[in-house]
Nucleic acid binder design. Sequence first.
DNA 1: GTACATGCAAACGCTTTGCTGGGCG
DNA 2: CGCCCAGCAAAGCGTTTGCATGTAC
Lengths: 131, 131
Amino acid sequence: MKKTDIKYTNQRIEILDFLKEFDGHPTVDDVFEGVRQKLTRISKATVYNNLRFLSEKGLIKEVNVKGVSRFESNMIPHHHTMCLECGEMKDYESEELCEYAMKIAAEIDDFKIESADTNFYGICKKCMEKE
Amino acid sequence: MKKTDIKYTNQRIEILDFLKEFDGHPTVDDVFEGVRQKLTRISKATVYNNLRFLSEKGLIKEVNVKGVSRFESNMIPHHHTMCLECGEMKDYESEELCEYAMKIAAEIDDFKIESADTNFYGICKKCMEKE
DNA sequence: GTACATGCAAACGCTTTGCTGGGCG
DNA sequence: CGCCCAGCAAAGCGTTTGCATGTAC
C-alpha cells in the first residue's frame, strides 16, 4: 500500500488542502462546507468516503471526539488538550511524553504497541476568563 | 452535587452492579442485555439515560471508542490498550505514567488540567497468535 | 473496456427526546 | 399533590451503502 497507489482526484486534493490550511480539528461538516467553496457539486458521501480513504492511507488522521469524527493533517506524533466547557481541542506536542508513553507501553505483557496518544482534559483560557 | 443527591432506583442499582461485575468495557447494548436478566421490563432509553446520569455524577466513566459509548466502573485513573485487529480494550494501570502526564500538562500555557488519559494502540495476544 | 470515483438518495445504527403513566415523598 | 423516574415509540443525527453515471488509463 504505497503512496503511489493513491489516485489524487480533484476532490481528494481539495480535501487535503483544506485540512492543511484549517486551524483546528474539523468535523466532516466543516470539511464539506470548506471544500464546497471550490467544488460546489461535491457530495457529503464523497467527503466521508475520501476522509476514510485518506486516513487509511495514512495521509491524515481521524480523531473521535464524543462520537463525532474529526480530522487533522498533522501526522507528527502529538497529544490533544480538550476543554471540558466548550469542547475546544488543540494540539500539544511533547516529544518526551510520546517517548515515555512508548517506553512504558513496550513493557506491557501480551501487547505489541504501535502507537500511543494522550488526551488532556481541562479548561481552556477562554472559558477560564468567562467565569 | 453531592453523592447523597443521587436517587438510587432499582434500575440504577442494577446498572451499577452489572458494571462492577462485568470484566471489560461494555457497550450500552451489553448493559441493556445484562440488566434485562433481572429487570425484564427495563427499556433501552432508561439504560441510556441512567448511564449518562451516573457518569455525570462521577460514579462511572464513559469511554468513546470509534463513535460508540462504552462504560466502566473502575474510577482509579488508568489507561487503555486497544487492539487494532479485534478492537479489544483493556485497562492498564501505570501510576508513573499518570503522574508524568499530569506533570507535563501542568506546564501547558492557558490550560487548567483536570485529568489525562493515554490510549495505547497495538496488537493483543490473541491476534498475534492468529497470524 | 476495465476499474475505480463521484453524486445522490435511501438506509442504517447509535443516541436522545416527547409523552404518558407510575412510585414515593 | 408534586416531583422525578420508567417505559415506549418516534425522532434525530452522524455515517455508510447501493446504484447509476462519469472519468482516467
